[in-house]
């Protein structure tokens, strides 16, 4: 809107350094790229550039997605997947948040745990799938364990780093105001690092989706990944793509949820759009 008033004197240009675009324009551009993507895909199918057995049309995929939900009880698969993500992520967070904060606050705690935590970070979680299957059989436990292992050590490290970056002056101010160690931890360190913890959680939740699909593809009869592997056996590419689509949508939905939480929980921060 501001741009419009200036446009009489200034030449409006599409490409300009250091110039923000309006929100409406951004939305429009963002939508356009998707229209082009699906348009090209639909054209490729219509004009026979691709084998429709391998590449179904986007409309076909959406129709299948509807069918999956309406007639084939796909909702329970989606529900199971979400429950697995949230369950294991919750356990990982209840462990990682206090541990990460303590490691970031006190060098002694860091010196004790960090060599252990860093070592685990370099082990790819899927390497544990065979042993997890042997230990926990084929129930829910091996999937939850894989998700947990894939997320926890990164989460601890991220939270530790954010905590150790809480500005020394804030802590020293509290010390010269008479704050005791635990008072300062609760009233300065924790509130200062909380927004960054939420950001770390948002990032790690995206990683958790990766491990979920791996777990469900390899060893599961339920969940979105398992549905996709079943579909592969019957050459139902439309169902596989519907699965991919729903994973993408859910990932995006969680991202939006976290961003909303960030705004609601930390209204005192300078958020974008101000």
């Amino acid at each position: 809107m501001e741009v419009a008033s200036k446009s009489s004197a200034y030449r409006a240009r599409w490409f300009e350094f250091l110039t923000p675009t309006s929100k409406r324009w951004r939305l429009l551009l963002g939508a356009t790229v998707w229209v082009i993507f699906f348009g090209l895909w639909e054209m490729a199918v219509l004009w026979g550039w691709v084998n429709t057995l391998l590449v179904p049309s986007p409309l076909e995929v959406i129709r299948t997605l509807y069918e999956l939900f309406a007639e084939r009880g796909f909702l329970s698969d989606v529900g199971i997947s979400i429950a697995r993500i949230l369950g294991s992520f919750l356990v990982a967070c209840t462990l990682a948040i206090p541990l990460g904060i303590l490691m970031g606050s006190f060098k002694t705690v860091e010196a004790f745990f960090n060599p252990f935590v860093s070592a685990w970070r370099y082990l790819p979680a899927p390497a544990f799938i065979p042993i997890l299957l042997m230990w926990f059989g084929t129930g829910e436990l091996p999937k939850l364990a894989l998700l947990f292992l894939g997320v926890i050590f990164f989460l601890i490290t991220l939270i530790m780093d954010h905590t150790s970056q809480v500005r020394a002056e804030l802590i020293e101010t509290a010390m010269t105001l008479g704050g005791q160690r635990w008072q300062i931890l609760w009233t300065v360190v924790v509130p200062a690092v909380l927004p960054n913890i939420l950001t770390s959680m948002r990032q790690m939740l995206a990683i958790a989706w990766t491990y979920l699909v791996i777990a469900e593809i390899i060893a599961s009869t339920t969940g979105i990944g398992a549905m996709m592997m079943r579909a592969r056996r019957f050459l139902h590419t439309d169902e596989i793509m519907a699965g991919i689509l729903i994973i993408g949508i859910l990932g995006l939905a969680f991202d939006v949820l976290f961003r909303w939480l960030q705004r609601v929980l930390f209204p005192y921060l300078d958020q974008e759009g101000h």
């Binding site: 500005r167 002056e169 804030l170 020293e172 101010t173 010269t176 008479g178 509130p191 200062a192 921060l269």
Partner: peptide
């Protein structure tokens, strides 16, 4: 450190 000797720093220390 103690409450007796309160310090104001050069860097801003308001709790956001």
């Amino acid at each position: 450190p103690s409450q007796e000797r309160g310090m104001v720093f050069q860097a801003y220390t308001s709790f956001d």
